[in-house]
């Protein structure tokens, strides 16, 4: 009887300890992108003036419409990688590996690199707090993760100012990111929620898929900035409000009403489809 109780107790303890560790899923490996509706972002990039489906605030829309791709001719801007809230959505395979505390064999951190400019991110799993408001912001931000069952939930702050789409819509340095990492067999899905009190009126929610690809390897991606166009010191590429001729191309080519091209929270929801049809039928531009 005594022996049985001891065994039961040990099994229960094992179940608790082992169960906790076992709920974690191995997220490490080389992951290649599975491209779906996110094709434009993961490929050549979205069209100038296409802000469809983005919940831009008035400030966000003005910022987007003032943006000029001449920015990339300015040497100081040339080597900017995609920030962490866009990097998985942009053109990039990724490598994920773990950091293990040897005595306890606990995974204390996940590391992640994206092929695009070989950015390196650390997701701390050791319960540390986020740093103070005076700490530098980085492209990858400061990330902490927590397992909920077999899903990893990652919170990221301290992200450098970046973009929600790479044709002008900005995300401010006040923005933050929440991700849910879910592995199903050899497919990894990351659902990300970008929040920004400055340029978004609602969170941007996206899901991205990867296929485990053990044969895939990153190559080096060095970037050295150089002067491509001789410009006066302090040149800043932008269009004055109302004077950007390029943003009309997208909506004219596809027959998208201006209101829909400008995005907005309303355009995120299924009901908007009816409104869009009505606008097109009414010949709205």
């Amino acid at each position: 009887m005594y022996f049985t109780r001891l065994t039961r107790g040990a099994l229960a303890a094992l179940a608790l300890v082992g169960g906790s560790a076992h709920a974690q899923v191995d997220l490490t490996g080389m992951w290649g992108q599975l491209v779906h509706s996110d094709g434009p972002d993961r490929g050549v990039g979205p069209d100038y003036g296409d802000y469809t489906g983005l919940p831009l605030s008035a400030a966000g829309l003005l910022r987007a419409e003032s943006w000029s791709d001449q920015k990339w001719t300015v040497p100081e801007h040339q080597c900017e990688p995609h920030p962490i809230d866009y990097a998985p959505w942009g053109p990039a395979g990724m490598r994920v590996w773990s950091e293990v505390d040897h005595p306890t064999q606990r995974i204390t951190a996940l590391h992640q690199t994206f092929q695009w400019m070989i950015t390196h991110r650390v997701i701390y799993l050791d319960g540390r707090p986020h740093p103070s408001q005076y700490t530098p912001h980085t492209w990858m931000g400061f990330s902490t993760g927590k397992w909920i069952g077999d899903k990893l939930v990652v919170n990221t702050t301290h992200i450098k100012e970046g973009w929600t789409r790479r044709n002008g819509p900005a995300r401010s340095d006040k923005g933050s990111l929440t991700e849910f990492w879910m592995r199903h067999d050899n497919v990894l899905t990351i659902t990300s929620i970008t929040e920004d009190p400055v340029y978004l009126t609602e969170p941007v929610v996206r899901s991205m898929n990867w296929q485990l690809d053990p044969g895939y390897q990153h190559g080096p991606y060095p970037c050295s900035a150089r002067v491509e166009i001789d410009r006066p010191q302090g040149f800043v590429a932008h269009f004055l409000p109302g004077q950007n001729p390029l943003i009309a191309e997208f909506r004219k080519n596809l027959g998208v009403p201006i209101e829909a091209a400008q995005g907005g929270a309303e355009s995120l929801y299924p009901e908007y489809e009816q409104k869009l049809k009505a606008m097109i039928k009414a010949g709205k531009k």
């Binding site: 100081e76 801007h77 980085t138 100012e161």
Partner: peptide, 22 residues
């Protein structure tokens, strides 16, 4: 340094520690 990050660090008058990108 690499990827328009780090390298020369900037102590701002008000706010956080920064770099050239900021």
């Amino acid at each position: 340094a690499a990827n328009e990050e780090g390298g020369t660090m900037i102590v701002s008058g008000h706010g956080r520690i920064a770099d050239e990108y900021d």
